[in-house]
Amino acid sequence: MRVCGVELKGGEAVICLLSQEGDTFNIPDCRKQSFQVSHSAATESIVDFHFAFKKLLEDYKVDEVAIIEREQKGKFAGSATSFKLEAAIQLCGLPVTLIQPQDIKAQLKRNPPQVDFVGLELKKFQENAFEVAYAFQMMKQFNKVW
């Protein structure tokens, strides 16, 4: 199964692809590590983001998407743009799971990755996207995805 982990922050979607075959994890090469949306008030910008993201999911044969859940209100609430991006991703036609940050941390503590992040050949800014993809795979493996 191939999962696309997504961290939404501001007008950016940072991604990491992670596939699992048996007990082996693989991070396939990907042409993009993030998508930027600079003018979220313009319909064309959101449509362009949706098209590009959906195309990436199709090209890399992604089965599911896991997104780090953001607060909807309060001091640490996500931006309006991040919620627009989330909706555009949810309309790509694949199952999308939102995972709370505390669930990701708990899963990483229970089942830590067998390799350091530095050895994965990912950019530092992709670490959270990798963690949500990895936590999702672990939850799915142990049937803890709701």
Results as ranks from 00 to 15, higher is better:
residue 2 R to D: 09
residue 4 C to K: 09
residue 4 C to P: 05
residue 6 V to I: 06
residue 7 E to C: 11
residue 12 E to N: 10
residue 15 I to V: 15
residue 15 I to L: 12
residue 17 L to K: 04
residue 18 L to R: 04
residue 18 L to G: 02
residue 22 G to Y: 07
residue 26 N to W: 02
residue 26 N to P: 01
residue 27 I to K: 07
residue 28 P to N: 10
residue 29 D to S: 13
residue 30 C to E: 06
residue 31 R to H: 12
residue 31 R to I: 14
residue 32 K to S: 15
residue 35 F to L: 14
residue 36 Q to L: 14
residue 37 V to Q: 04
residue 40 S to R: 03
residue 41 A to V: 14
residue 43 T to I: 13
residue 44 E to N: 12
residue 47 V to R: 10
residue 48 D to H: 07
residue 49 F to C: 13
residue 50 H to E: 15
residue 51 F to E: 11
residue 54 K to G: 08
residue 59 D to H: 10
residue 63 D to M: 13
residue 64 E to A: 10
residue 65 V to Y: 00
residue 70 R to C: 12
residue 71 E to Y: 14
residue 74 G to N: 05
residue 79 S to P: 03
residue 81 T to W: 06
residue 85 L to T: 06
residue 85 L to M: 09
residue 86 E to H: 13
residue 88 A to K: 08
residue 88 A to M: 02
residue 89 I to R: 01
residue 90 Q to W: 00
residue 93 G to F: 01
residue 93 G to P: 06
residue 95 P to N: 01
residue 95 P to Q: 00
residue 98 L to E: 01
residue 99 I to A: 10
residue 103 D to Y: 02
residue 106 A to W: 02
residue 108 L to I: 08
residue 109 K to P: 07
residue 113 P to M: 00
residue 114 Q to K: 14
residue 114 Q to E: 12
residue 115 V to G: 01
residue 117 F to S: 05
residue 120 L to A: 11
residue 121 E to Y: 13
residue 122 L to K: 10
residue 123 K to E: 13
residue 123 K to T: 08
residue 125 F to L: 05
residue 125 F to C: 03
residue 129 A to T: 05
residue 129 A to Q: 03
residue 137 Q to D: 09
residue 138 M to I: 11
residue 140 K to Y: 06
residue 142 F to C: 10
